[in-house]
Write a protein that binds this DNA or RNA. Sequence first.
DNA 1: CTCACAACTGGAGCGCGCTCCAGGTCAAGT
DNA 2: ACTTGACCTGGAGCGCGCTCCAGTTGTGAG
Lengths: 128, 128
Amino acid sequence: MTTTPQTLTPAEAAERSGFSLDTLRYYERIGLLTGIARAAGGHRRFTDDDLAWLGVLRCLRDTGMPIADMRRYASLGRAGNSPENLAERIQLLERHDAAVAEQIALLRSQRQHLHEKIAFYRKELGQK
Amino acid sequence: MTTTPQTLTPAEAAERSGFSLDTLRYYERIGLLTGIARAAGGHRRFTDDDLAWLGVLRCLRDTGMPIADMRRYASLGRAGNSPENLAERIQLLERHDAAVAEQIALLRSQRQHLHEKIAFYRKELGQK
DNA sequence: CTCACAACTGGAGCGCGCTCCAGGTCAAGT
DNA sequence: ACTTGACCTGGAGCGCGCTCCAGTTGTGAG
């Protein structure tokens, strides 16, 4: 039995976050991930905090935030907790939230057209 | 006063469909748009039917259907109305509809996380 | 110690969906 | 007739977000 590690290997982090190994490395390169610890030989070790942050990134990615905005958000996270900083993070997320709401509304409305189309074909098919 | 035209110029079609001129030309090139009429000098003329089809394409694009699938759908549309053909169109749209439903669900659930984050920052900000 | 496998780096490449460009033609108001 | 602006074509280019590669080094089970 192996001892439970405090940290995760890249493969484990990929598995748990749902990002590929290459994406994790890419995110570190572009500054979305910073301060990832390294084992003696240079291999990355992901902490639970890192994983939590990856969860945030997953949320933002899944909702279609552009990487440039995620970088901005990440950089704010590194820059302390001044009221101005917090206000900007709130603004960033609220703007994004509004965009997501709009996207949901668009999908829902276009989905209605889809349903109409499907119903139409069903009817045509029924008549044969 | 100009006579009301039965057809639309490319610029008008772009305006009404919301696709750019380049996109309209691109869609024709790749076979998403076929049988677009031409005026004497080679300029395109879009009919109301063309516009209706562009509306369908807009619906599919807005809901994230890949162009390959739209091409398949377009080609089915050109291939008659046999029961098999209709069945395949229904299947295509239903699969897509399921994907859209999933996407909406994902957006909605990730949006909750967004709201939690925002609430958290608001609280932090309130404490200062 | 060995051997297989995981991870490392820097950089190139890719798939998608357009978008832009050059060099020319067409249309329409004056 | 002239001019201006819309449109034409084929093909190159682009922005995004990864993804893959080559060549090397680290890790851990047996």
